[in-house]
């Protein structure tokens, strides 16, 4: 069952690479993130799945689309064909999922033992506490970098 998800994931990844329109590529990337999070759920890692969904399919996609809208000042050249490809893929994927669930329920059964949320939290805070320090540093670096990069030209001239 995981194979199915991952197969579709690869398909959408291929699309993201090959499509010329960058907006559509970013949308394909969002689909990849969503499918990956489903795969994580199927592999009994709900924590990772939740994070991946919220971050990949949510935060990254939003940021990317926002930036693209700033960047592409001209009117978007939409390849009609490309959109169709994406929409078609999504539909087909959903259909196949539905079919599988209806026809082979056992295939969707979870073969792996579940992990509880509490376990991961415990590991994160107790065992990998040390990792949180570089995390904070990375976040700080990212913030500063973004601020530096987004500084307006005019502010430079004043100084």
């Amino acid at each position: 069952m995981v194979y199915l998800t991952l197969g579709f994931l690869l398909l959408f990844a291929l699309l993201a690479v090959l499509l010329r329109d960058i907006l559509l590529s970013v949308l394909s990337l969002a689909a990849v993130s969503a499918l990956l999070s489903i795969a994580f759920y199927q592999l009994n890692s709900p924590v990772a799945g939740a994070f991946e969904l919220s971050v990949g399919a949510g935060l990254i996609t939003v940021l990317a689309v926002l930036t693209i809208s700033f960047v592409q000042k001209r009117k978007e050249k939409r390849q009609a064909g490309a959109v169709l490809w994406v929409v078609l893929s999504l539909t087909v994927a959903a259909l196949i999922f539905f079919l599988f669930q209806a026809l082979w329920p056992q295939a969707l059964a979870n073969v792996f033992p579940k992990t509880a949320w509490g376990d991961v939290g415990e590991v994160l805070w107790k065992v990998r506490l040390f990792d949180l320090l570089p995390q904070i540093l990375v976040i700080l670096a990212a913030v500063l970098g973004i601020l530096a990069l987004l500084r307006k030209e005019g502010e430079n001239k004043e100084k």
């Binding site: 890692s45 994070f51 971050v55 935060l59 991961v120 995390q135 990375v138 990069l149």
Partner: peptide, 21 residues
């Protein structure tokens, strides 16, 4: 899985930072 998931969470967070920058 508990250990690995915590690592994965950290990697995801870093991925976000990279994308932002």
């Amino acid at each position: 899985l508990a250990y690995t998931q915590s690592l994965a969470v950290i990697v995801i967070a870093i991925e976000v930072m990279v994308v932002a920058i």
